[in-house]
Amino acid sequence: MLCLLRNFDVYAVQVPRKKAPTKFGFALKSSDKVHLFETPEDDYIHYVCTDSGESLRDWLVGLRASKVTRGGIDTFMRSHFIETTL
């Protein structure tokens, strides 16, 4: 397992990593405090590169959607008077 979705967020990488195979990178960083990790250099943040811009976009959108719980969206929609029925 690489990481849990519950406490990791998906980030776009602004500057490509050193020796990165492609320039299409994203990162999975923990939202927990760094001192909770025994080996933060290995577990706190994970860098990933995709082969194309399209697949990078798919990963970013897909992982963001995977993180969302239905209950969280419903609460937001109720508070902002948005219809949940599609």
Partner: peptide, 24 residues
Amino acid sequence: GWVHLETKKSKWVKRYLHATDTAV
């Protein structure tokens, strides 16, 4: 799908990555 993952600093390996409802 297949991606490049940085396992150690400046060391990249090809891995098959997939997300479930709770984890990657």
